[in-house]
C-alpha cells in the first residue's frame, strides 16, 4: 500500500469513539491524534489489517488505563460515588412520594389494584433507572473532564452494592425460602448502567463543543 492510500484509511470507528469517550476531556484530542498518527504510519508500512488490529489493541489497553483513572483523580471519584449515592437516595424518596401521590389521586389501590399489581415491580424498577440516569447526568456535569470515570465508578459501586445485597439475601434465606427479592437485581444492574448512560449523555454534549486547555 502506498502512503497516499494509507492517508485515506481510517481506524476502526468504534475504537476511536470509545477512546474519545473514556479519555479525560483535556487529553482526548492528543490521545486520539497520537493513535491516528501511529495508525497511519503502520497502515502504510504493514498494511491496513495489521494497523487496525494494532489500533484495537492500543485502544483496549488505553481504555483500561483511562478507566482506572481513579488514581489520577481519587477525590473526584470518591466524591462522585458518595455524592451520587446520596443523590440517588434523595431522588428515590422524592420519586416514591410523587408516584404515591399519583396512585392516591386516581385511587389506584382502591379501584384498580388487580390491574396495577403486575406493574408494581416495573414501576419501582423504572423509578430507579430514571432517577439514576438523572443522578448520572448531575455527577458527570460536576466531574468536568472526567465524566466517564466518575459515572463508571458510581455504576460499579451500585452494581457491587446490588450484587453483595443479593448474595447476602441468598445466604440468609434457608431452604425453600422466598427468593422474590432477586427480581430487584436486574433493575439494580440496569440502574448502574443508567448512571453511566447519564455520564455518556453529558460527555457527548461536551464533545460537540470541545474545550482546548491553555498551554502551561
Amino acid at each position: 500500500m502506498t502512503s497516499s492510500q494509507a492517508d485515506f484509511v481510517q481506524p476502526p470507528r468504534i475504537a476511536v469513539w470509545l477512546v474519545n469517550f473514556f479519555a479525560p476531556a483535556e487529553e482526548a484530542e492528543s490521545i486520539v491524534g497520537d493513535l491516528l498518527e501511529e495508525f497511519t504510519q503502520l497502515a502504510s508500512k504493514s498494511g491496513v489489517a495489521i494497523a487496525r488490529s494494532w489500533y484495537w489493541g492500543q485502544s483496549v489497553r488505553t481504555i483500561a488505563h483511562l478507566a482506572s483513572g481513579f488514581r489520577a483523580a481519587p477525590w473526584t471519584t470518591i466524591a462522585a460515588v458518595v455524592g451520587g449515592f446520596l443523590l440517588i437516595r434523595c431522588g428515590l424518596k422524592l420519586s416514591h412520594t410523587a408516584v404515591e401521590a399519583v396512585l392516591d389521586r386516581y385511587q389506584v389501590w382502591e379501584n384498580h389494584f388487580d390491574v396495577y399489581r403486575p406493574w408494581i415491580g416495573i414501576t419501582v424498577g423504572m423509578e430507579h433507572v430514571i432517577v439514576t440516569t438523572f443522578v448520572g447526568i448531575i455527577v458527570a456535569a460536576a466531574a468536568k473532564g472526567r465524566e466517564m470515570t466518575a459515572t463508571s465508578a458510581l455504576g460499579l459501586f451500585l452494581s457491587a452494592l446490588g450484587v453483595s445485597g443479593a448474595l447476602t439475601g441468598v445466604a440468609r434465606t434457608t431452604g425453600d425460602g422466598d427468593y422474590g427479592f432477586l427480581w430487584t437485581l436486574p433493575w439494580i444492574l440496569a440502574s448502574s448502567i443508567a448512571a453511566v448512560v447519564g455520564g455518556a449523555i453529558v460527555r457527548t454534549r461536551r464533545s460537540v463543543a470541545p474545550t482546548r486547555p491553555s498551554a502551561t
Binding site: 479519555a23 490521545i31 481504555i63 483500561a64 488505563h65 483513572g69 489520577a72 502551561t216
Partner: peptide
C-alpha cells in the same frame, strides 16, 4: 506500552510538578 499508560503517567507527573505541557 499503551498510549493510555504514557498519558496516565504523564498526568501524574504533571500533577506533581515534574513535567509541563503545551499544545
Amino acid at each position: 506500552v499503551s498510549i493510555g499508560a504514557v498519558y496516565a503517567t504523564l498526568a501524574r507527573l504533571e500533577s506533581k510538578g515534574y513535567v509541563k505541557s503545551h499544545r
